[in-house]
């Protein structure tokens, strides 16, 4: 009871603060500062039609590298804790209809995810949503069969390879243009065609592979946490 009241009081105070602060954020008429320069120069400098992808991969590529490292830490912690402290699991046999659908559907869904990643510089999408879509196909396969895919344990290898290639692509920029994660040294191409945007498609592939393998590893650890398949 005391805790409920104290929480309510804190939330009410914060609500009053928000009600005082948010109306002060006046609606802007024009882009300002960093956003203006990204919008004005982004397409010429990076060759990417999608400015959000240009910001994520090219302008803030180093931040994205750090963010991928955070993601790696979180997924590794999940897998590690589930390996150290296994929890009993009861795997159920899916029915024939579900099993059939789970065999048919992953291919088009994975094609959709690959489309996201490959067109990250042209249309909405990119490494993160494409990677999660591919990870959801892994989940679908896992739900539709009593066995766990990836018996050989190739997921950590893919994950390491993707992270390593992200770093190496950055160092390639140092070698050729003297700048980490330089985007333009491959040539930016004409914006709107699929081979354009310099380094952006390659790094999107790396991000997509890393996100997909990390979430797939988390789900595999969830399924595997009892020991038996």
């Amino acid at each position: 009871m005391i805790r409920t009241l104290a929480g309510l009081v804190i939330v009410l105070i914060l609500g009053a603060v928000a009600a005082a602060v948010i109306p002060e954020m006046q609606m802007r008429e024009e882009l300002q500062g960093v956003g203006y320069s990204y919008a004005s120069r982004g397409m010429d400098e990076t060759g990417s039609s999608n400015l959000v992808t240009a910001v994520i991969v090219a302008y803030r590529g180093l931040d994205t590298l750090g963010e991928v490292v955070v993601l790696f830490c979180a997924s590794t912690a999940v897998v590690l804790m589930l390996t150290l402290y296994p929890i009993g699991v009861k795997a159920s046999e899916p029915s024939r209809i579900v099993a059939f659908t789970a065999k048919v559907l992953p291919a088009p869904i994975m094609l959709f995810g690959v489309y996201f990643i490959a067109h990250s510089h042209l249309s909405p999408g990119g490494g993160f949503p494409g990677g999660t879509v591919i990870a959801s196909t892994f989940l679908l396969v896992m739900l539709g069969s009593s066995s766990v895919p990836d018996r050989n344990g190739r997921l950590p290898a893919i994950e390491s390879l993707a992270g390593l290639s992200f770093g190496l692509l950055g160092f390639w920029g140092i070698m050729t243009a003297g700048q980490f994660l330089n985007n333009a040294f491959l040539g930016t191409g004409t914006p709107g065609s699929i081979i354009s945007g310099g380094l952006i498609p390659l790094i999107s592939i790396a991000i997509g592979a890393k996100v997909a393998s990390e979430f797939s590893g988390v789900f595999k650890a969830f399924r595997n946490s009892g020991g038996e398949a």
């Binding site: 992808t53 996201f116 909405p124 999408g125 990119g126 949503p129 999660t132 959801s136």
Partner: peptide, 12 residues
């Protein structure tokens, strides 16, 4: 972009 990411992550 954000809408696609939120839909695939938050809902699935």
């Amino acid at each position: 972009d954000v809408a696609i990411t939120e839909a695939s992550i938050g809902a699935v």
